[in-house]
């Protein structure tokens, strides 16, 4: 059985600042990133939809110890954002000083863009990643 939305299409869309997801035709839940089955009810009966990229920060951390190959990126801010339509996605927050962020960040509204992670020895090629900035 073919999956309705694959990583490759999701990734190409993200490069255009478009966030794709799947809307379950059985329970209306939005699933993103793409999967074969609805994250809520397990049904494969889903249709591809373009999601709103507005959201708010649910949690964050400033990373000071990077993985091998990514040492030069530290310090950087990781966030999990709750999208307007429900799903949570992980990304980076840019435009603020990583060493200055506090719990005040939680609940802040953000806009989404993207950058490319070029990949390393272990990854099967590149992946786009969401880059958030504070809205307004």
């Amino acid at each position: 059985m073919e999956q309705k939305l694959y990583f490759a299409q999701y990734n190409e869309a993200l490069k255009q600042n478009k966030l794709l997801g799947l809307k379950c035709q059985q329970c209306n839940t939005i699933t993103t990133p793409p999967k074969m089955a609805c994250r809520q009810c397990g049904s494969p009966d889903m249709e591809v939809v373009e999601l709103k990229t507005d959201g708010k920060i649910r949690t964050f951390t400033t990373v000071f110890v990077g993985a091998e190959g990514r040492e030069s990126e530290v310090p950087y801010i990781l966030v999990i954002v709750e999208l307007e339509e429900g799903p949570w996605i992980m990304g980076n927050l840019e435009g603020v000083e990583p060493k200055s962020v506090t719990m005040e960040l939680i609940g802040k509204k953000v806009k989404m863009g993207n950058k490319i992670f070029a990949g390393d020895t272990y990854s099967a090629g590149e992946s786009a990643r969401p880059i958030f900035t504070l809205a307004g």
């Binding site: 990583f7 949690t59 964050f60 950087y76 992980m90 719990m103 990643r129």
Partner: peptide, 23 residues
């Protein structure tokens, strides 16, 4: 595919859970 590109690490996961727990 969907989370490592952002630079997630094992401590970062639990660091984010700490802030989420406090909130």
């Amino acid at each position: 595919r969907y989370e490592y590109p952002s630079g997630v690490t094992f401590p970062a996961v639990f660091a984010m859970l700490t802030h989420l727990y406090a909130d």
